[in-house]
């Protein structure tokens, strides 16, 4: 699958030029862009409590491809939701660019999800009323006013089409999600997540609902994105093989992260 460069936008990007590689020492020197401090998350069902995360610490560096591995129900998705400002911890904090996400207003967290973070889910989560192009443009549509969107419509459409072309979805622009295969839907979901050039791409079992071959192509897309454009990726998976494709892999066990080799 070939991948072309996304169209540059006016938003400053820390990404290195396409084709650049990042040696391990260079990665270690990269700044921490997201940090979890002593995260606690407890699910309550009536009187019983189920602690999922216990005093979990994590640092994510710019340009890093981090895989978090774990069994089903280990709390991987919960961790991803906390890191991605979709959920709030019961204890500890998530710091992004020096700011505690938990102390941000609801609208500031929404803006963070819109501008700084991108999400790819296991079940794609495309809006059935919108076609491929419109689903891809959802981020800018949420970000901009009607007039603002109309002013930048051509530029945004071109960017969306370029992204979709890089994911080999440019021939399906007017198709609705129900007219696409699982792999195609996931590629549209990736395009949507990348549309606003997020600093961090969160991928929650991105291949979990796909057959092995399609899963591989999706992983190739994510890897290429990281390798060629320096995209920071945080992926959770139960599949150790997939986790090994990342720069760094951690395992979530008993509510804490550990090195899988240990």
């Amino acid at each position: 699958m070939g991948m072309t460069s996304p169209v540059p936008s006016d938003r400053p990007t820390p990404l290195p030029p396409p084709g650049a590689t990042r040696p391990a020492d260079a990665l270690a020197a990269s700044p921490v862009i997201l940090r979890a401090d002593k995260l606690d998350k407890i699910y309550r069902m009536g009187d019983s409590e189920l602690p999922v995360l216990r005093k979990l610490d994590l640092e994510i560096r710019q340009g890093e491809f981090l895989a978090i591995e774990g069994r089903s129900g280990s709390g991987k998705s919960t961790l991803l939701h906390l890191l991605g400002a979709l959920d709030a911890p019961d204890g500890g904090s998530v710091i992004h660019n020096g700011r505690d996400i938990g102390k941000m207003s609801s609208s500031a967290r929404s803006r963070l999800r819109n501008i700084e973070f991108g999400f790819v889910f296991q079940f794609y989560h495309l809006l059935p009323e919108l076609n491929v192009l419109e689903n891809t443009l959802l981020g800018p549509m949420i970000e901009l006013s009607v007039l603002g969107f109309r002013r930048r419509k051509r530029e945004l459409r071109e960017r969306a089409q370029t992204l979709l072309k890089s994911l080999e979805m440019d021939h399906r622009l007017k198709h609705r999600p129900w007219q696409l295969s699982g792999g195609e839907r996931q590629r549209v979901a990736i395009a949507r997540a990348l549309m606003n050039q997020p600093k961090i791409l969160f991928a929650d079992e991105p291949t979990g609902n796909l057959d092995a071959r399609t899963g591989r192509t999706i992983m190739e897309s994510i890897e290429r994105l990281h390798r060629d454009h320096g995209q920071t990726v945080v992926m959770v998976t139960h599949d150790r093989t997939l986790a090994r494709q990342a720069d760094r892999a951690l395992i979530l066990r008993d509510g804490r992260l550990a090195d899988p080799a240990v």
Binding site: L86, S110, L112, H125, L127, L138, I142, E143
Partner: peptide
């Protein structure tokens, strides 16, 4: 409901 979750995950505010 799920669509509302999707929209919120992409950055829509509660007011939106």
């Amino acid at each position: 409901t799920r669509d509302i979750g999707i929209i919120k995950s992409v950055g829509a505010t509660s007011l939106g």
